[in-house]
Design a protein around this nucleic acid. Sequence first.
DNA 1: CTTAATACGACACTTTTTGTCATATTAAAA
DNA 2: TTTTAATATGACAAAAAGTGTCGTATTAAG
Lengths: 319, 319
Amino acid sequence: MAKSRRLVDMLMFINTKRTFTAKELAEEFGLSVRTVQRYLLDLSELGLPLYSEKGRSGGYRVLKNRILPPILFTEEEAISIFFAYQALQYYHDLPFDAEIHAALQKFYVYLSEETKKKVDKMSAHIAFWNPKRNLDTPYLKELLEASLAGKYIEFLYDSKAGQTRKEVKPLGIYAHNGLWYCPAYSYDKQKVLLFRADRIHSLKVLEKDENMSLTLKEWLETEPVNSQPISLKVTLTHEGVRQCKGVPWLENHVKVARDGNGYIDTITDGNELNYMASFFYTLGAHAFIEEPQELIEKICCHAEETLRRYKNEVGTKDE
Amino acid sequence: MAKSRRLVDMLMFINTKRTFTAKELAEEFGLSVRTVQRYLLDLSELGLPLYSEKGRSGGYRVLKNRILPPILFTEEEAISIFFAYQALQYYHDLPFDAEIHAALQKFYVYLSEETKKKVDKMSAHIAFWNPKRNLDTPYLKELLEASLAGKYIEFLYDSKAGQTRKEVKPLGIYAHNGLWYCPAYSYDKQKVLLFRADRIHSLKVLEKDENMSLTLKEWLETEPVNSQPISLKVTLTHEGVRQCKGVPWLENHVKVARDGNGYIDTITDGNELNYMASFFYTLGAHAFIEEPQELIEKICCHAEETLRRYKNEVGTKDE
DNA sequence: CTTAATACGACACTTTTTGTCATATTAAAA
DNA sequence: TTTTAATATGACAAAAAGTGTCGTATTAAG
């Protein structure tokens, strides 16, 4: 028992030093060099990746990453980790993919047969659905690392106008609907631009780095504030209520009457009129917009234009 | 060293037996009863929750959950677990929430200061964005457990027609766009129905259970096959190409010409016409549908109806 | 060719672990 | 009520594991 404790202590010490000689450890722990060598043997048998160099100015080095002291987990905790992993299943590209698999494997081998079955089963009974994408996003890890380090990067971007060169400082990365996005600060334009990570090519990390001024989280929180407040008033049928409660930007603003019909009276973002137009268009007769007039006009204008386009076409075909 | 290994072996044995006497262990491991008692003392000092009962027909019992043997993780692996956890941050309700926090805490305390900072930082630079929902979904864990056990359940459901009583066997649960769904097999209707978990009330687990015939995974995989194949042909502007590449059901079917314009010629699901109509409506002049005629009619019909509704209303107000 | 490191075997010494025996206590079964 | 089978704990000697001190090899920098 005493030995295990000392082994753990030595592991911690080694982790922080990364490179050391047997003599150093012997003095640190009040042991003989021979014993230290025996301890190191034990540790590498336990899985610590040690590398030694003989000769003057030689010594030991820990390869790869630091290793945490042994931790006791309950099976329930292990299950919960497998559960969390389900949330990543639908992503085509992920940073840390190899590490997660290694960690899960370590848990898995120690699970009881019964729990192994439960975990296997779980992946068949839980899903965090996201559209399956086939787009490659090769620079995810680089974008993340650059944002953590506060470094500027340079890349080619497929934009509306074709490929353009960008020089920006990424704030972080986020996944939405199966795609990865990267908001990044452009020094030239003095504002944050939003990029789709799969449209980024030939990325280079620049040496220029700066203290982080803005993080992804802050940006996500402040972004919705840049809005043009506009009053929205809509009457809803029973089915309209159901549909509107299903979208996050409306769910808290739907008032329901006794008869099951509903009414929306709230302030929304005037920049989102296009999105709102297509949303209420889909609802058809289940929603009737009273305000704003601009939204009604947008919908009518779009409807007329659509009719014109298809009717004309039908006309030409008939002639 | 020999002792630690034997302690681990004993831990594993105890985990599977759950209830045992010192004599049993002594025979199993070829040790004296006295030594076994000393081992058990060590194990409970390490955190194994043991309970003992004196007297004839007494013995030991493990309380609570099984404990896994000590595992060595690298710091990178620990980081990857924190990363996976980010994917769950935006969910309002989660099964296993307490366990995940307990597990993360165990990792966190052993991380080096440097890595603690990295992990703290990460949550500010990565997000798996999902609409924030405020709907309570209290029966998530019950739905999951019932699906794993293959049990029937009974509940009240808020449907279009008001509250109705359902008796079904859940296949599993899945999250989509921040909401939890539960497909479940109805014996009455002899088919799988899809429920929104937040609309489920007063759930009761029934005793009736059956061997699983279908899992969530299988259902998700087979579901899209129940389609009505229909030919879709669309011409796209440069911007239309960009937009269509951004949606999963089209991204692989967009052909791009040299001039940047594009063309879609594929087979899709005829049941999705409503959704497709609203999608192409949003694209406006950037997409021109050639086939199917039904889709064009749907769009035109909807446009006419929309115009009629709003123009009339404007008329009555003017009078 | 000296020095400072790893590598490892041998052996005596020290510490820890283990088994045995003794004794107490408890609760079910005879 | 007595027996029996379990836990609980202490003491002590025997066994095993761990440790320190040698000695010897090997390696590579100075």
